[in-house]
Amino acid sequence: MAVNKELLNNSITKAITILNCFSYENPRLRLKDISAITGINQPTAYRLLNTLKEFNLIEQHEVSYSLGRGFLKYEGIVLNSMEIRRICLPYLEELSNNLKLNVNLAVLDDNEVIYVARAETPYCTYGYFHIGMRRPIYCTALGKVLVCKTPEVVSEVFKRDVNRYTLNTITDADTFLKEIEKVSLQGYAVDLEEWNNGINCIAAPLYDATGKIIAGISISGPTSMYSVEKLMEYVPILIDYANRLSARMGSRGGW
């Protein structure tokens, strides 16, 4: 039986569109919600959801749907395929052990910060974290270093609605552009309770051989233990590790 490739490709596109409509904010959706978000009519969406259920990529909960457990087996495969994660992990663990702080590695994905590795210490436990977690660029130190050379990304982000997570969250595009200009000049960024009350963070960029920022590393801790002054003492150490990792990525510095 011949397969209509155009029809198959169209179905795959629609199935991916359905999968992409789920998010941390909306982990469960009803059929009518999925249809409204994707623009796919309900009968077609229902048929595709049932097909995805057969492969455990979708789970049904009475009247709602969520992403299925079938995706979990891919997480380790994706993480193991990331060369930058493999190279950086020993450095993250060494830095975490030396400073008794949590150390994060993140990249830019779809104009958001996505965390791809973390080294944790029992001396600094706070909050909830998981690999693959996403955060906005405009209220995180990692976001600031990841876009400090690409203001066009900032302009795109601020075309959408931005949320004020704390009193310190930057919600004005011009203010943020001035902030990342400073980050670009000084070589590091700070997040002083901009994403989360009670958490301070500093971050530095990682460069590849072309001078492009490909990732960022950060250290963070609760304000009760790490005041602004205390955290700033670690800036030279963080930049040193960022430079060492950039060198591993082929950077010759001088950017």
Rank of each mutant, 00 (worst) to 15 (best):
A2Q: 13
A2L: 14
N4Y: 08
L7T: 07
N9F: 15
S11Q: 14
I12E: 06
T13I: 13
A15G: 13
L19K: 08
P27D: 10
R28L: 10
R30G: 14
S35T: 06
I40S: 00
Q42E: 14
P43E: 11
A45D: 04
Y46N: 09
L49R: 06
T51H: 10
E54A: 04
L57T: 02
Q60C: 09
V63W: 06
L67M: 10
G70T: 05
F71T: 03
L72A: 15
M82D: 02
R85H: 07
E93L: 14
L95T: 03
L99A: 11
L99S: 10
V103W: 05
V103C: 10
N104K: 14
V107E: 04
V107Q: 03
D110V: 05
I114K: 05
A117D: 13
R118H: 12
T125N: 09
T125I: 15
T125F: 11
G127C: 07
H130S: 14
H130Y: 10
R134F: 08
I137R: 06
T140W: 06
A141D: 08
K144F: 09
V145I: 10
V154R: 00
S155A: 09
F158W: 00
F158V: 00
V162F: 01
V162Y: 02
N163L: 10
R164Q: 12
L167F: 14
T169W: 08
F176C: 04
E181C: 12
V183N: 01
S184P: 03
Q186P: 02
Y188K: 01
A189Q: 08
V190C: 08
N196K: 11
N200T: 03
A203M: 05
T210S: 15
K212C: 10
S218E: 04
S218F: 05
I219G: 09
I219Q: 12
G221F: 02
P222K: 09
T223D: 06
S224D: 10
K230L: 09
M232R: 13
Y234Q: 11
V235T: 08
P236S: 01
I239Y: 00
I239A: 01
D240Y: 12
N243R: 12
R244L: 11
R248H: 12
G250T: 08
R252F: 14
W255P: 07
